[in-house]
Design a protein around this nucleic acid. Structure first.
Lengths: 327, 327
DNA sequence: CGCACCTACTTACACGTGACAGTAGACGAC
DNA sequence: GTCGTCTACTGTCACGTGTAAGTAGGTGCG
């Protein structure tokens, strides 16, 4: 009870077990190429358990050069249950690979990311948007082994390579399947959502192209009834159905139509709880975000093993339309 | 270009500047009690900048015994914009104190938290719920300097000490002010939300007690119209107004009432975007979550300085009622 | 016996940093 | 000129760990 302040190290375990620190380390790490009798192994494990030994990560990282932290840099856009499930599942998969998943909400305005790499020196970093050249340079500097997306390159972004594209595509295909020949796509007026928004709208555009239809009318609104109503009014003689960036935008559009006494089919994205309570109940695209998280995690692990991460586009079975009354 | 693999250390900076590593360290850390001429200081800074030197956190932590990472352990309940703003602001305040805020979404089911402490060995940890005895023990083991909430103690939880209580209180007070004498409180059927739910309901209970009224009727529902409708039906001759745990629950209740052709005043919490598009538009309690995040951050910093964190109850100006049509 | 070879360990170094203790040289005081 | 003091540095140890290299003792083989 005297030395309450000292941390328990492998030296303590070695002393307790009557062995050298090296032996302790071999046992605790299952170091291959060592022949250790079961009796000794047990002696070490017993001692470690008795003292409540926990290896000290900073020392371990310093020595071995690799940390077991994986970092998700989340954008500061509003995060719903979709993202939560994604992160949760990714954490699970990474955990099985011995990695601990940490998230950092990055509020674009400052350059705190540099501080972040050096404070954590994570083994892997995943970002929802492509990193800037400066960010990539900073990460190279501190030698982070795996970074996704790996490059700054105009054509390469989460929107086009991951699943965002597929979402917009599915929305459009659903409405086209209902017989609509001209669609509108509504984006939210939030710069933070620009990347995703563009990705989804592009997906819808592709679907229209494939069906031999004109491009959708893309329109940006703020999240209020007036803005939505004026968008709705502008489609009087063009679009006959509406894809919304997400359920919140869709709800705004529904409110706008209600204000005007109009009614067009609307489809959202996310299936937030509020969607089913809307009037009319909102048809929307639900994502199997857990599976997506799993994909990302596996891609990170691959990247750590110097394999090609091949974070391809989304298999269609991970997203589906939840059909309700609005479309 | 030859040694692309080696990390740049303070040795490199020292060599570049033609000084010893100790001097470099003194300059870069502004170590007090050292007299260093401006010319030398500039020489060091120039060299560090030229080489792009970044101190290696694990080594720094190992040596100094303190890390500059603060950890938020977030519950895995669905996180809306409220929590995002809270975390964002807390990160800002902590950043000014030289701390980097990291969040970890903890999905209660596994015991991955232990791995987390040792992987990060953060300087401070904040949890939305009280930690279990085992968790606290684990943190003591790795010597984490500041932990909030600090103790496992039945009466002490975030619900009663922070702001949750105040939210329920304000909801009830608002409805009482409208002349209602008997209230209902509706909680969601999600075990993860139990702590918060109880806190809020208790706040409402207190408000009723203070007004000399009967306790509110507390009822738990699942997030669907039928469940909400049966709750509404059960209040036929008791409650005349409804407090909902949050906006999602409130929207469910509105849907339930719509199905029954009934109409009671309803007030939610959070002011999610969907609230203003509901029919009728939802009256709700909005929280200044940024200010709350600031409070938490400051309490953590105080705890790090061995001062009393005194994470008191919420000043009333951080929450307010957004009045719309539903109540 | 002499040599090789295995088992079961131990010794010793390195990772990059912070900071204590020391020291060469300059300068002033007596 | 000697002592003390101050400036501007440098040498060196410690933090806790992983692991390469070494070694004492036993066993097998000729």
């Amino acid at each position: 009870m005297a030395d309450k302040k000292r941390r328990i190290t492998s030296v303590d375990v070695a002393r307790e077990a009557g062995l050298s620190r090296a032996t302790v380390s071999f046992v605790l790490n299952n170091t291959p190429g060592q022949s250790i009798p079961e009796a000794t192994r047990q002696r070490v494990l017993r001692a470690a358990d008795k003292l409540g030994y926990t290896p000290y990560a900073p020392a371990r990282t310093l020595r071995s050069g690799r940390s077991d932290v994986a970092l998700f840099v989340l954008p500061d856009w509003p995060q719903g249950p979709t993202m939560a499930a994604l992160v949760d599942r990714a954490a699970q998969v990474l955990g099985q690979a011995g990695l601990t998943l940490i998230t950092h909400v990055h509020a674009g305005h400052d350059d705190g990311l540099a501080q972040l790499w050096s404070a954590l020196s994570p083994a892997a970093v995943f970002g929802m948007r492509p990193f800037t050249a400066a960010e990539l340079e900073g990460m190279r500097r501190v030698r982070i082994p795996a970074v996704l997306p790996p490059v700054e390159q105009p054509g390469y972004d989460v929107g086009s390579t991951l699943w965002i594209n597929g979402v917009g595509r599915l929305q459009a295909q659903y409405l086209i399947g209902k017989g609509h020949r001209r669609l509108a796509y509504v984006l939210p007026d939030d710069p933070r959502l620009e990347v995703l928004g563009r990705g989804r709208a592009e997906g819808a555009m592709q679907a229209c192209g494939e069906a031999g239809l004109q491009e959708p009318v893309v329109r940006t609104i703020t999240l209020d009834t007036e803005s939505a109503a004026s968008a709705v009014a502008s489609w009087q003689n063009t679009a006959t159905a509406v894809c919304a960036y997400n359920d919140e935008v869709a709800l705004a559009v529904l409110a706008g139509m209600r204000a005007l006494g109009v009614s067009l089919p609307v489809i959202g994205v996310d299936d937030i709880p509020a969607a089913r309570f809307a009037v009319p109940a909102l048809t929307t695209v639900a994502q199997d975000s857990g599976a997506i998280g799993e994909r990302i995690a596996k891609a990170l692990i691959k990247a750590l093993n110097n394999e090609d991460p091949e974070l391809g586009s989304l298999p269609s079975d991970l997203i589906r339309v939840v059909e309700r009354d609005s479309a």
